[in-house]
Each structure stands twice: as structure tokens, then as C-alpha cells.
Design a protein around this nucleic acid. Structure first.
Lengths: 344, 344
DNA sequence: TTGTAAGCGTTATCAT
DNA sequence: ATGATAACGCTTACAA
């Protein structure tokens, strides 16, 4: 039972307690300062003392207490990412982008749910952002975000995907308005004139900006804007897309195309249309937004706007890291792309 | 510029520095001990001293430094969730379940990516699990997880979804083997005898367990197991499903049904089949697993095994919390359900 | 090269 | 009821 395998070393002693730096010092017969020095490579130490310390560290399975270390150093090397919805693959992909650059720079990532309204005393966040992270990348709705910003001074923020206009905090985003213009113009070019907008709660800046783009494109083409044609879904899940699109069919002069502000909404809409026997895109064309993974595999494959999601996250991370290093941080807008597939 | 609105109070002074407890004490004319007492309600304090302290707190926009507090208390009230893949809605839903119960109990959630192999010195994790969290809920592959378990003593772990057999750590999961049996038996009941298995890397315990179920169901029905019929996808993304399923069609006696160990794989397979003109389920039936949101909206809607995802997460959280409170923690397996829709 | 000691911002144990 | 003061586990001058 003792040597079931030839494991390199248990690394952890039988004791239930975690070893502290003083335990290591004692074990190695040196002072805690010396231990700290070999741990951090902060100053030259004698080769054999170093060896003794390292042996002690191994023997005790010692790991520096991150809390104490951060308290001293004044930094945690942890970044907080605020995500409005874990279930949305779009956000997931951004987080991956963030991670790819933070990892390289030795920063850890803490992802927190920002789905519900964030209040100052939100217990989960309170402990998190309060000096537990060196900076924040927020994908949250700006409306939710704003109150938080005011509370915590000295905490560098970067907004990602949400385009913030008043310039209070730097952000990385595509030009949602222009992307919407491109999408609707594409529909117009294909001969559509009755184009519905399937959108979301405008607490999201991008929802507002995409609606503006939609309206602009219509106006530019001298197509009157019909308030009947814009529907606000209760959320961005598939079901809400079905729900909101369903009512579109009931109109006396139904639209020939719909621009949905997210792929999930678009897919929900298509489902609703087909349920009542409408063909997509023959009877009604549907454009999505985001180009989530399922967009290309769904049938009909979605014509949609692709965001450079990965890059969005990576750029936001770089921005934040730059700010942390004391540099200036400038907002930056990335390029979107129109992906033509089968749904419109 | 001073009073643009009637805001309750800026809460944060113009200073760039965060106020510490001693600043508050000084401002209120009391000792730091007293400040701590009113903050934590830990002992009775005079009404007017309390008022003075609270005023100082408000005036300075003071918030306790979480690092220092945790260092003293010996707990962070933060739980770590290890997620193998952010982009997988299945995991996302589990996290939501976890969150629903941790929030109630005043615990915060830290979600970390465990997609790559976790090494002891994985920088992101290192700082994270090292006393920064009071406990861990892992959705990671057991193979990745195991090395970590050994390193950190005294850190309560709970595995979720991954069914761990040797009982080292408690886990919450469905019975993957039985679920697979149910799925394959359903296919058999519908008259299929050449049933392919579309599975994933067996570093995931559930992948192995589902394959075992698949084989058991076949044997039980006296159907010989054909190694040609089991395909291991390179990942669980849609594309890998397409890729792995594509080769199935090339067989001389192609299967009449396929059991995919995830909905994403199933959808990818369906896509591949239809590309070459096969109809689902008429020509070939496809069963999924997980019942992700898109499963019901995809066409054909997926026949699949539903896991009580939300509940899985919630139960795992309850288990961990119970352990943290010093109670015993027993593994527990939840019920799955066969959802019959259109794909099989 | 190494050790002593002063913090970092809290909480908790004494006294008072 | 309140105030010193000793931890918590670490880093970092400053001495030796």
C-alpha cells in the first residue's frame, strides 16, 4: 500500500496543514528571507543554500500563499472578465481570445457572471473586483457596467464588444452600426424592401447601434421605416427568436426579409417560419449576426455578419495589459465581415 | 461640473488611492479595531460611534481589502470552477446551476479554463487554486484533474459530470453507462442492428462509460460489435462530427443508425450525411447526447439524452458547500431522460 | 551571501 | 464599549 507505483514524489507531506514559508526556512535551516529570495530569484544566493531550500520546498510540497504574496506585491496578476451570459458561444469565443494573450503574459483569468444587474453589493463581485484582480475586461452591458465603474478607483477597465461612446473607458469593438448597414444593404441589394428587424433589449449598446444602422440603411434607400417591422425579443435565446418572429407572420403585409441582431435569434426565426410552412430564403430571407459555430452547420446555413471574436478578446487583453504597464490605452475598432451563405 | 445630477454621493473621493481601514479609523476618530467591528457586526458598538464610522466609510468610499481579509480569516468565500471548454453550452449550463446555489450562500464564483493540460505550474491556475479559492468544482477531464488533486491538500474538490470511479473525490453525475444503454436500446427497438458509435477521446471518463454502455446494449441484443463502426472524433465541435461521420458512409455496409456521444457531434454527423444526399432519419437515424439548446431547434430536431444540467451544477455546489461546512460529502448520481424528437 | 525586521490591510485577543 | 497589539504569510529594505 505504500509504494503502489514509482511516483516521483508525493510532494505533499502527510500533514493536513499547508506549509508556510517559515516551515520551509526551518526545514532548510535558513531565514524566511532567503527562502523568498530563491523562490523569486530576486537576488543571488549561494548554490548550496539554494539547493537546500529547493529540497525543503519539494519535501514540504510548499507553494507560496497567493493571498499573502499579492497583499505585499500590490498586484494579483489576475484579470477579471465580466461575462453577461456563459451560454452564449459568442462570449465564450471572446474569452478564449483574451486567454490566449493573458496566458503568455503570466496573467491568470477570472471569469465572472454579470448576467443579472450588478449592484455594488453583489456578493460574488464584491470580493472579486475589490483588489482581487488587477484589471477588468467587461463584456457586460454598459448599463450594468457603469455603476461599477464609479465605485472602484484605480482599477483599469476595458470594455469589449460593447461600444462605449462617451469615451470614459477604452473599448475594443467592431463598428456595430456600420455592420448593420452592410447587412441591411445586402438585403436591399437582393431586392428586398420590406425588411424586419429582430432585435434585443437596448440596454445593450450594440443593439441600439445595430438598430441605428438598420434605420440608416433603410432611409438611405428611401424605404420608409415601419415601426411594425421591428420586434424586440425578450432575450437572445433561440426561443425568444421564435417567439418574436412568430408575430411577424401575422401581419397583413409580411416582410420578405428579416435582419436579426444575433444568430440565435435568426435561427429561432427560421424555425418559426418553417413551422408555418414558409421556406427560407425563398419565401423569406433571414440574416443573422455573429457567425457562431452552429451558423454554418444549420440548414439553411446562415448568411450573417462575422465578428473577429478571437481577435476582439485578444486585443482587449493587450489593451488592458498595456494600461497595467503604465502605457496609454486607446480604443480600437476591428473589422467585421459579411458572410454570404444560404439563408439570405 | 460639480453637481450635474443629484447623485446620492460620489462614494469615492478624488484621491487616486484606495482608502485603508486606518484611514477610516482616523477619519472617524476611532481605532481600526472599532472600524472592523462595525464592518463585521462582530460585537456591540455604541450607536453614535457606529454612525461616525459609517459616515467615514461612505465619505472615503472605503471597501475592505479582500486580500487582507481572506488572509486573516483563512477563507476567501470564493469557489473555483474548472471548465474544459467555455464554448460548450453544456458546461455553461452547469456553471449556471452552480452559480444559483453559491450566490444564495454568499460565495463568489471564479471560473477558470481547464482546456489545456493542467500542469502544476500552469501560471493561470497556480495563483488561482493556491488558497485563492476555498474549494473546487471540476468539470475537467479526470485525466487532467488527477495530478492537481494530489498537489493541494486540504482543498475540497467535487467532480461534476465526470464520473470518477475510484472514489477519491466525491462527484455528481448521471449514469453515463446506463444512459448510453438506454439510447442504443431505443435504436435497437426501432429495428436497427448496424449501429455506429461516434465518440470522443476517452480521456473523458464519460466517453469511455458511454462506449461501455453502447457495447453492453449491443451484446445484450446479440448484436456483434464491429470495431469498424466506432469512430473517435478529434474533438466535440461540429466539424469533428462531420469529419468522423463522413468516413462512415464509405463503408461497404453502412450503418443504419449512429449514436453520437454529444449533440454537437450528432449535428455534425447529420450535416455530413445530408451533404451526400442521405436523409435523416429515413436513411440513417442519429441520436445525440446532452440536449443542448440548439438540439430542439435544429432540423431534424435531435432525439437525444437529456442531462439535468442545471441540477448537476447545483447539486455539485451544494455538495461542496456541505463539505466546507465540515459535513460529509457523498457522491450522487442524477437521472437522465431520453428525449424522442425527429432525428431517430 | 544571509538574517533581522518593518510593513501590506485585515481580524481577533487581550486589556482597559 | 473601545483601544493596543499580535497574528496571517509574504516581500523587501537595511544590516551584518
Amino acid at each position: 500500500m505504500s509504494t503502489k507505483r514509482n511516483d516521483p514524489a508525493p510532494a505533499v507531506p502527510a500533514s493536513g496543514k499547508l506549509a508556510s514559508i517559515s516551515a520551509v526556512a526551518q526545514h532548510a535551516g535558513v531565514s524566511i528571507a532567503t527562502v523568498s529570495r530563491v523562490l523569486n530569484g530576486t537576488k543571488a544566493v549561494n548554490d548550496d543554500t539554494r539547493a537546500r531550500v529547493e529540497a525543503a520546498v519539494a519535501a514540504l510540497g510548499y507553494r507560496a500563499n497567493a493571498l499573502a504574496r499579492s497583499l505585499m506585491r500590490g498586484e494579483t496578476r489576475l484579470l477579471l472578465v465580466l461575462v453577461p451570459d456563459f451560454a452564449n458561444p459568442y462570449f465564450a469565443e471572446i474569452v478564449k481570445g483574451v486567454e490566449s494573450v493573458t496566458r503568455k503574459n503570466g496573467y491568470g483569468l477570472v471569469v465572472a457572471d454579470a448576467s443579472e444587474t450588478l449592484s455594488r453589493d453583489s456578493p460574488s463581485l464584491d470580493s472579486l473586483y475589490n483588489r482581487l484582480a488587477d484589471g477588468v475586461i467587461s463584456l457586460a452591458r454598459f448599463a450594468d457596467l457603469k455603476p461599477l465603474l464609479m465605485e472602484i478607483p484605480d482599477l483599469p477597465w476595458v470594455a469589449c464588444s460593447e461600444f462605449v461612446e462617451d469615451g470614459e473607458i477604452p473599448n475594443v469593438s467592431i463598428d456595430h452600426r456600420q455592420a448593420a448597414i452592410d447587412a441591411v444593404q445586402y438585403l436591399i441589394n437582393r431586392g428586398h424592401r420590406r425588411i424586419a428587424l429582430l432585435t434585443a433589449d437596448e440596454d445593450y449598446q450594440w443593439a441600439r447601434q445595430r438598430r441605428e444602422g438598420y434605420e440608416f440603411a433603410l432611409r438611405r434607400a428611401n424605404i420608409p421605416i415601419d415601426a411594425q417591422l421591428v420586434r424586440i425579443a425578450r432575450g437572445t435565446d433561440y426561443v425568444y427568436g421564435m417567439e418574436a418572429a412568430g408575430t411577424l407572420l401575422a401581419m397583413e403585409t409580411a416582410p420578405t426579409a428579416v435582419f436579426a441582431v444575433s444568430d440565435t435569434l435568426a435561427i429561432g426565426a427560421i424555425k418559426a417560419f418553417r413551422r408555418v410552412g414558409r421556406r427560407v430564403p425563398e419565401d423569406i430571407a433571414v440574416m443573422g449576426f455573429d457567425d457562431i459555430p452552429v451558423a454554418r452547420v444549420f440548414e439553411p446555413a446562415l448568411t450573417t455578419i462575422a465578428q473577429p471574436v478571437r481577435e476582439l478578446g485578444a486585443t482587449a487583453a493587450e489593451l488592458l495589459l498595456k494600461r497595467l504597464a503604465g502605457g496609454p490605452a486607446e480604443s480600437c475598432t476591428l473589422q467585421h465581415a459579411l458572410i454570404v451563405r444560404a439563408s439570405a
